[in-house]
Computed example of a mutant assay.
Amino acid sequence: MAAYPNSPPVQQTIKLPAPSGACTVSITAALEQRRTCRTICAKPLSRQLLADLLWAACGVNRPEGPFGRPGRTAASASNSQEIDLHVAMRDGAYRYDAPAHELVQVATGDLRGYALTPGQRSANPDMPVHLIYVADIHRLTHSTGFLEPGLQDPETQKSYYYVDAGMVAANVYLYCAAEGLAAWFHNCDRDALALRLGLRQEQRVLFAQSVGYREEI
């Protein structure tokens, strides 16, 4: 699969295992356990856990959704699916391709430090996974869904992509609560990430979310 324009050459594509569907925790129990936890240890997530996490966040859950596009686990304005998840790990940064359920490498090297602001870097620098939320404005302005006038207005666009990013982040929080993982939604070094991820002008880094096992204190 081709990289986005202006992005670094793709080094590798990681095909993720199918979602396991193994979680047996009820939605009520997950809501009871949902919380922010900033003490995250360096233990890596298994490939299956990572696959399940990304699918829960914004994966394809039905082949036919609104306006003729596949449906996702997280809603979006006119089903524009304008929120991309980039995943920063020790060995590089990847974009989650939800329809293919795979990770496409967009940068080499460890970018996890840029997923935190300078004031947050006192946290464990070896947290294994940082999800980076990127809005693609082009998908809002060129939606195949209902072309309401607000999709062309920058302030209305902003309200949509912030809400849509929040829906994905809420899915991540619930999945982590059900699996006993720690999750922390936070700010990030937007300019540095945009540069290193090779984003286009129409793309915006919004926030990051750190995920891993809880550090025992």
Rank of each mutant, 00 (worst) to 15 (best):
G180R: 09
Q203T: 03
R204H: 11
A194V: 00
E179P: 03
G180E: 03
A178P: 02
L181D: 02
A178M: 05
D189F: 01
F185P: 11
G180K: 10
A183N: 13
L181Q: 03
L181W: 05
G198T: 08
Q203D: 15
A183E: 05
E179K: 15
V205Y: 00
L197N: 11
W184A: 12
A183D: 12
F185E: 15
A192T: 12
L181G: 04
H186N: 04
E179T: 04
L199K: 07
L181R: 05
H186T: 10
G180I: 05
L199I: 01
C188D: 09
E202I: 03
L197D: 11
A194G: 08
H186I: 00
V205D: 03
D191S: 09
R196D: 01
F207Y: 11
L195M: 07
Q201G: 02
R200S: 13
F207M: 09
G198R: 10
R190A: 15
G198I: 06
E202T: 15
D191P: 01
R196S: 00
V205T: 01
N187C: 11
A194D: 00
A182Y: 10
Q201F: 08
E179R: 12
R190H: 05
R200N: 12
F185W: 05
L197H: 10
F207I: 03
L197A: 14
N187S: 15
L197F: 09
L193Y: 07
R200K: 09
G180C: 06
L206Q: 04
L206I: 15
F207L: 11
L197G: 04
E202G: 10
E179Y: 03
A192M: 13
N187M: 13
L199F: 06
Q203F: 00
A192W: 00
H186Q: 13
V205L: 04
F207P: 01
L197W: 08
E202N: 15
R204W: 07
G180L: 08
L206G: 01
A182M: 13
L181H: 03
R196H: 08
H186L: 02
L193G: 12
V205W: 02
E179V: 01
R196A: 01
E202W: 04
G180H: 06
A178D: 02
D189P: 02
C188K: 09
A192N: 06
G180P: 09
H186M: 10
V205M: 01
F207D: 10
L193P: 09
F185M: 13
